[in-house]
Computed example of a mutant assay.
Amino acid sequence: MSQQFNLDKFDVNGDVREAAESAGVDRSTFLRNGAIAGAGAVGVGIFGLPTLAQAKISTKPSAKNDGKILQYALTLEYLEAAFYAAAVDQDNFKTPELKQFAQVVAKHEAQHVKDLKAALGKAAVKPPSLDPTAVAAIIAPDAFGPTAALLEDTGVSAYAGQGPNLKQRAVIKIALSIHSVEARHAAWIHTLLGGGAVGAPVADYPAPRAYDKAKSQAQILKAVTGLKGGGKTLVTKVDTSKF
């Protein structure tokens, strides 16, 4: 059955480590920032959920495929929105600048979720289930910034990966408008983590290379479901039945 979504209701207001590495952030960067050092930090596993093999977005553009891509995008936006909402609610940041970043981006991601759900209507995919222990670990003061960078770099790679698979002009406009905002988020957080300082390693720069590498649906889902915090897998369940 084809996916049904109402584009008229959409109102645009304006593998995680692997995906991040493809965007110019290498493993040494994460180690320097403390992203995968220590028991309470975030790490990336090499395993995904069994159902991911059944989820497949076609590389042949069609209206039906556009619906699947929107469901996939909504799933990723759910994850980002939950992360920032939890961090803002906890209100324990290393710097005022990181707090401001979290507050602003939390509103953006919540808006993305709201509008994608409106576009998809009753067919909208359900949010992924998250482990509370893992959430608490990745929003801890030392882990929040590096985790935010991971998620934003992943979002940029994910939208870039699906752009060529889109057919309808309205959906392309939606994806492009979100993609550019996610890229701004990524540049912002990398700057706050020191990437904009004179003498910073090139891999840490807000814009470390001339071209970003796109990532496939399978690569992104494997990475996201491999996210870990506090020794627990972050995403415990994800619904891939609609994409």
Rank of each mutant, 00 (worst) to 15 (best):
R184H: 11
T147E: 04
E152G: 03
V88P: 05
A63F: 10
G161T: 04
G48I: 03
A170S: 14
A20P: 01
G45N: 05
K167W: 02
V88F: 04
V171T: 12
D8V: 04
A158P: 07
N165C: 08
I139F: 08
L76N: 03
A102M: 08
F83G: 05
N33H: 14
D66K: 02
K242V: 10
V135M: 15
A85N: 06
Q217K: 01
L193V: 05
E77T: 06
H108D: 15
L150E: 01
V125L: 01
A63W: 05
A53C: 03
A53K: 10
G196W: 05
K94T: 14
P128W: 06
A140C: 09
F93P: 08
H190N: 15
R209E: 10
A187I: 06
P201I: 04
A186D: 07
Y159W: 11
N165Y: 09
M1S: 13
K68P: 00
V181R: 08
G48M: 02
H179L: 15
P128A: 09
V238L: 13
A200E: 08
H179R: 07
K232G: 01
V44N: 13
A37I: 15
G24F: 06
V224R: 02
R209V: 10
N13H: 11
V181L: 12
R209S: 14
D212C: 01
T29F: 14
G43P: 01
G155R: 01
L130Y: 11
I46M: 12
A210C: 01
Q217M: 14
A197I: 11
G195F: 06
A85K: 12
F30Q: 05
D91M: 07
A63Q: 11
L79C: 07
A37R: 12
V88W: 06
E80K: 04
G121T: 11
P141K: 02
E97V: 04
P127F: 04
D8H: 03
G34Y: 09
S62H: 04
N6C: 05
N165M: 07
Q71G: 03
A137T: 06
V12L: 13
K237A: 15
D8E: 13
K232V: 04
G230C: 07
V113G: 05
A160W: 01
D212L: 11
Y211M: 10
D66N: 03
A158W: 07
S180M: 08
A81R: 03
F83W: 10
K60D: 11
N33P: 00
M1Y: 09
Q103V: 12
K213H: 08
D91L: 06
A124Y: 05
S129H: 12
Q168L: 09
I138D: 03
A63H: 10
G194A: 02
K167N: 09
G34R: 02
L52H: 09
G229T: 10
K64A: 15
F5G: 02
D11P: 00
G121L: 09
L192F: 06
E97S: 13
K99R: 15
G67E: 02
P208D: 07
P132K: 08
I172P: 04
R32A: 14
A63N: 08
A143F: 02
R184S: 13
A20S: 13
Y211P: 00
D15G: 12
V25A: 09
A148L: 07
A183S: 14
A207P: 00
T95D: 05
P50Y: 03
L120Q: 00
E21A: 13
A81W: 00
Q219T: 14
P128N: 09
S129E: 15
G196R: 01
E182S: 08
G226D: 05
V135D: 03
N6G: 00
D15S: 10
W188N: 14
